[in-house]
Design a protein around this nucleic acid. Structure first.
Lengths: 215, 215
DNA sequence: TAGATTGTTAATCGATTAACAATC
DNA sequence: TAGATTGTTAATCGATTAACAATC
C-alpha cells in the first residue's frame, strides 16, 4: 500500500467540484456558517456518499453533526482544484466560437481571466467584450510578457498545431483545445480537448438505445 | 451471468467511436478494403486492445490476419452509435455560441442536420450559415411539423427550462444543453450537458498538480 | 442521551489491461 | 508453415456504493 497522505482524484470526481463551489458560495451568500455533505448532496440531487468522499479528498475537516466550516471548505476546494489563484489566459482565434467564449461572464468565478485575444485579422485597437485583440504574430512575445499559463484554442484546424507551438514558446503550460486536432506537445504541457463529436456520440447512443427498447 | 448477446457500452468507449469512424472513412477513401484494429490503433496512438474490444461491441465480425471488411465495420459502427440515419435537429438561441455551432461544417458527418434555428430576436427571412431562423414562439409547432428529435440549447440561462419544455412538447427526445442549467425533463428525454466549467476543472487540476510536483 | 454527520474500511461494479487459444 | 490478427476469458485497477464505528 502506498503511503501518500493525499489521494489523487480521477476526472469524474474533479468535474463535480465546480458544482460544489457554486452551491457553497451560494450558501455563504445566504449567511450559512457550516455546510454538510448531506445538504449539498440534497441540493444537487447527488448521492451523499459521493459528496462526502469528494470533500474528504480536499483535506477539509468536518465536524460530526454540524458539517464543514463553510469558509474552510471553500478554501480547501479552491486549493485542491487550483482555483485559489487567478490563472492568466489568452484566447487565439476570435471567430464566432472565440467571441462567444470571450463574452462568457462565468470564467472569473472559475479562477481565470482572459488577458488578451489574438487573431489573424485583428485590427488596430480592436476589443471584444473588453478584451484586446492582437495580431497572431505577437502571440509568443505577449504571452511571455504577460506571464500567461493557459491558452484557449478556437482557430481553424489547419493552424492549430502552429499556434500551439507559439503559445508554448511563450510559456503556456495548458491548452484548452476547441479544435478536433490532436496536438503534439512536450510532456510538461497539459492539453484538454473539448470534443463536441464525442459528446454528441454519447447523446446519439442514448437516444438510439431508447428507440430500440421501444420496439 | 446475464445472457444478453449484445453488451452495452459505457460512455468512455462511445466517445472513441467518432474517431474510429473518421479514420475508417479516410481509409475507405484511400481505397482500402480491410481495416484491422491494430492499424486503427496505430493511427490513433491507442492501445490495440481497446480498439479490438470497441469493435467487438459493434457486432462486426473480423477475419484473423486480415482484419474487418471496411464497409461492414463502418456500417456496424454507424448502426451501433445511431449514426445510420440523419437525425433532425433544431438550435435555439442564435447568439454567438449558437451562430458558431450553426456555422460548424462537421455536423453532417456526425449523422445529423440542423433544420432550423430559433431566437427571440429573429427577423423576417433571417438565415445563419444557410439555416433559417424563426421566432422562439414557433418552436413547438415547427419542431412537430419537421419531425425533429434533437434540440440544441444555446440560450440564456433564465429561459433554458422554458425553451426545453417547448422543444419537448414539439416531440424532441434529446437535448444538447450548452447552458449550465440542470434541466428537468420527463424520463424518455435524454439530456447531454456540455459542461465547460467541468472541463476547465479537469484542466486546472492537472495544471496545478504539475506545478506542485515541480516544487 | 439520541440522532445526525463525519471518516474509514470493506464490497461491488465497470472498464481497462493482460493472456492465450483459435483462425486464416 | 509461420505469423499476424481476432475473439474470448481472466486479472487488474479505479471509482462508486455500502456498512459501520467514532464523534459531537
Amino acid at each position: 500500500m502506498s503511503g501518500s497522505t493525499r489521494e489523487g482524484a480521477g476526472s469524474r470526481s474533479i468535474k463535480r467540484f465546480p458544482l460544489y463551489l457554486r452551491i457553497l458560495r451560494e450558501m455563504k451568500a445566504e449567511g450559512a456558517e457550516f455546510a454538510s455533505g448531506a445538504v449539498v448532496a440534497r441540493r444537487l440531487a447527488f448521492d451523499p456518499i459521493v459528496v462526502r468522499k469528494d470533500f474528504a479528498k480536499t483535506g477539509a475537516v468536518g465536524r460530526p453533526r454540524l458539517g464543514f466550516p463553510l469558509e474552510d471548505l471553500i478554501d480547501a476546494i479552491e486549493r485542491f482544484g487550483g482555483w485559489q489563484t487567478q490563472t492568466k489566459a489568452v484566447l487565439v482565434g476570435a471567430g464566432r466560437l472565440g467571441s462567444a467564449l470571450l463574452g462568457y461572464p462565468g470564467f472569473s468565478e472559475q479562477g481565470f481571466k482572459i488577458e488578451a485575444a489574438f487573431d489573424i485579422d485583428a485590427y488596430h485597437n480592436q476589443q471584444i467584450a473588453g478584451v484586446p485583440v492582437y495580431p497572431a504574430e505577437e502571440i509568443t512575445g505577449r504571452v511571455r510578457k504577460l506571464g500567461v499559463s493557459l491558452g484557449i484554442l478556437t482557430v481553424p484546424d489547419e493552424c492549430a498545431q502552429k499556434i500551439t507551438n507559439a503559445l508554448i514558446e511563450g510559456g503556456v503550460r495548458g491548452v484548452w483545445n476547441f479544435t478536433p486536432v490532436r496536438l503534439k506537445v512536450p510532456g510538461h504541457v497539459v492539453v484538454k480537448r473539448e470534443d463536441l463529436a464525442a459528446s454528441l456520440a454519447v447523446l446519439f447512443y442514448r437516444l438510439h438505445k431508447d428507440e430500440e427498447s421501444l420496439k
